[in-house]
Amino acid sequence: MTPEEVKELIYEVAELTPGVGRLEESLKWGEQSFAPARRNIGSSVRIAPRQNGEVALMFICHTNLVEQFRTLYPDALTYEDNRAIVLEAGRQPDLEALSHCIGLALTYKLRKRGKSGPV
Rank of each mutant, 00 (worst) to 15 (best):
M1H: 08
T2E: 03
E4A: 13
E5P: 00
E5V: 11
V6N: 15
K7A: 14
K7I: 05
K7Q: 15
E8L: 07
L9M: 06
I10D: 11
I10V: 15
I10G: 12
E12L: 05
A14I: 01
A14R: 10
E15I: 05
E15F: 10
G21E: 04
G21P: 00
R22M: 03
L23H: 08
E24K: 15
E24P: 02
E25A: 06
S26L: 02
S26K: 13
L27V: 09
K28S: 15
K28T: 12
K28D: 05
W29N: 02
E31C: 09
Q32H: 05
S33V: 11
F34D: 06
A35M: 08
A35Q: 12
A37R: 11
R38Y: 06
R38L: 02
N40G: 08
N40K: 15
I41L: 03
G42E: 14
G42S: 10
S43A: 15
S44I: 05
V45M: 06
V45H: 02
I47G: 12
I47E: 09
A48M: 11
A48R: 11
R50V: 08
R50T: 10
Q51E: 13
Q51M: 07
N52L: 13
G53Y: 00
E54A: 09
V55L: 05
A56I: 07
A56N: 14
M58K: 15
F59S: 05
F59P: 06
F59H: 01
I60W: 12
I60M: 02
I60V: 08
C61K: 04
T63H: 11
T63M: 03
N64C: 01
L65E: 08
V66H: 11
E67P: 00
Q68M: 07
Q68W: 11
Q68I: 10
F69V: 11
T71L: 06
L72A: 13
Y73W: 07
P74R: 04
P74C: 11
D75G: 08
T78M: 04
Y79V: 15
E80V: 15
E80M: 09
E80K: 12
D81T: 15
D81R: 09
N82D: 05
N82S: 13
R83F: 03
R83N: 08
R83Q: 11
A84K: 04
I85A: 10
I85H: 03
I85D: 13
L87V: 02
E88W: 06
E88S: 14
A89Y: 03
P93T: 12
D94K: 02
L95R: 08
E96R: 13
E96S: 04
A97K: 02
L98H: 07
H100A: 12
G103A: 14
L106D: 11
T107M: 06
T107G: 03
T107V: 08
Y108F: 15
K109Q: 10
L110H: 10
L110K: 04
K112P: 00
R113Y: 10
R113Q: 15
R113P: 00
G114E: 02
S116F: 01
G117K: 14
G117I: 06
P118D: 09
P118E: 04
V119N: 06
